[in-house]
Design a binder for these strands. Structure first.
Lengths: 336, 336
DNA sequence: TCTCGCCGAGAAAGCGGTTTCTCATTCCAA
DNA sequence: TTGGAATGAGAAACCGCTTTCTCGGCGAGA
């Protein structure tokens, strides 16, 4: 291949059309009336040259580049994928693009990744950040405009979009209680996950509200194999009297469900099982998994709405917490 | 909030340090020796001011912005997610970030989306593009450097990273044939999917290689509910003599598996079932789903390797086709 | 001791656009 | 007919950084 030909610039277009660069710019942006003749000659020059303006130059002068970044602990989590999808589509409708930064659950890299991503973008979405609260508070101040997802941060000057896990767990416990369950096991999530802490609060509140209910917490994780591996503890809890299980999320529940099947434990006959998030797979499990539905793409869209306001210099809009909706399916049933 | 304070620039740093902008730049980039005293004063000025260089300005000068874009038909597909994850992590290790552009399966928007994304980035990844071949050939010429994933494009001047679906299907048919199956149903994917066409070629080759095997193609799709909905046709094929089913991908297979269970059809007793892609959920299904494993994140990494070479002005590296690996699990068994 | 070459630092010229500023027209009202 | 406002187009400044160009100072060789 020969020497790379320099890309054509606005100057080339101006020369070809016999007008000034300013006029070309005006035609391009159409925010000032221009002589129709000039418009025509500029347009034909653009077409003839196959010109397309440099995004970088534009960014420099405008101080923005119509791109936002989403920082996420693990791209493989269906919840984050759904949020990314919703965010990406909503932002696209306003001409914004989304850059993804996967921190691969490395808590120590989160801050640096966020700062670096922020440099390239006009705004940031921090999705379920794992870092300590004090660090997060400091960070959100530095990377504004920013929206935080799935991480409570009381009184911080940042919009939060999240899921009411406390309420979700309570509703789920209510569901199980109505089915007659009084002894429940909760398979917990990653220690660094704030939403796990929220779920645990939900557990506590549920216990407080229903003194007749007892909930044992057993260690788990966030992925399919974590659920599979948690079966042992769950069985122990079952032997100890638990008749129902709530898993940190659907992946854990599905992994657990598989293992319970292998162990010959009937769900929901012997043990009821519920997950969280209502991932697409949930309703396709055997038995279909009871879960708390979370509007993933809707969350993404809401995040964008808040971010857009912020970018436009608007106020910090109210935070919003989605209340999960119970999807009662075959994996939970009346206590025997 | 008061008038937004202008961001600090390299000029501020230079002034504070009492040196020229050029020196600050030299310190920053460290590609020229600078007096240690100047280095120190610049560094402390940077620290004191909390300066961070403008990415946009840098991009303008360099003509690149260390960002690539991945255009994908549907972010919810686990295959693409895996590729994105692998790509994103590999690129990150070279200081590159990835921007995602989801075309939401709208074939007509693909080209525009790709062109638009290319403007903001140094290079492009076209993931399973749905557009017609002629259009794609034209496009890849315009958006170079570019790597195409999962779409054959013979003799095009572009590296291709993909999966050998032809071979994969053949291997899968061989597996079923060894189990005694002679009548198989193939639940096909989206009409616009090139990889579905490849699978169909695999079907044809398998038939040609094994005259005793017959494979019926029934319509399907690419998602869980497509598989669920395809059950009717599959049952018809089963009644017609088919003893095994190959689904377009694992999602279809899992959806189908669920419905077959509801219909009381024993898998693999009555009907063997296999998917494709080996998504994480596959081994957690009941029964565990036989599938063809595809190295999703590895593909992403390979894509980056090729793209990096291209960006650096290197040659178009050889295309690579991964041969799927059979993961024989419980959903396929000997014919009754 | 003098000259040549090298090195390091500042000045200035871009990178490719947008936007202000300026000035020449045009149009309307007095 | 003329003054003044409105309009439109070109010149030039500017966005923030990199990189070339230039020049002063210094060390080494003669």
């Amino acid at each position: 291949m020969s020497e790379r030909t320099r890309a054509i610039t606005i100057a080339d277009v101006a020369a070809k059309a016999g007008v000034s660069q300013a006029s070309v710019s005006r035609v391009l942006n159409g925010k000032q009336s221009v002589d129709p003749g000039i418009v025509r000659s500029v347009q034909s020059a653009i077409a003839a040259l196959g010109y397309s303006p440099s995004v970088a130059a534009r960014s420099l002068v405008h101080g923005r580049n119509d791109t936002i970044a989403m920082v996420v602990p693990d791209l493989e989590n269906p919840l984050f994928q759904g949020i990314l999808k919703g965010l990406s589509r909503a932002a696209a409708s306003d001409g914004y693009r989304v850059l993804v930064a996967d921190t691969a659950e490395r808590v120590d890299d989160e801050e640096a990744t966020a700062l670096e991503a922020r440099q390239r973008c006009d705004a940031l979405v921090l999705c379920a950040p794992r870092m300590p609260e004090s660090q997060l508070r400091r960070l959100v101040g530095r990377v504004s405009p920013v929206v935080v997802v799935n991480r409570p941060l009381p009184d911080a000057a940042v919009p939060i979009v999240g899921v009411d896990y406390v309420r979700g767990i309570r509703d789920l416990v209510d569901h199980l209680r109505e089915l007659g369950h009084r002894r429940i096991a909760y398979v917990s999530g990653p220690a660094t996950s704030a939403s796990n802490a929220e779920r645990l609060r939900g557990v506590d509140e549920a216990i407080a509200a229903h003194p007749d209910v007892r909930i044992d917490v057993v260690p788990g994780g966030s992925r399919l194999d974590d659920g599979y591996a948690a079966a042992e503890s769950v069985v122990a809890a079952h032997v100890g009297g638990a008749t129902a299980v709530i898993a940190f999320n659907d992946l854990v529940a599905l992994g657990l469900l598989q293992r319970l099947g292998e162990l010959g434990i009937d769900v929901p006959g012997e043990l009821s099982l519920a997950g969280f998030d209502d991932v697409p797979m949930a309703s396709f499990a055997t038995p279909p998994l009871t879960s708390m539905s979370v509007p993933r793409t809707e969350i993404g869209a809401q995040v964008w709405a808040r971010l857009r306001t912020l970018i436009a210099g608007g106020p910090i809009e109210h935070s919003v917490l989605y209340r999960p909706r119970l999807e009662a399916r075959g994996s939970t049933g009346p206590v025997r």
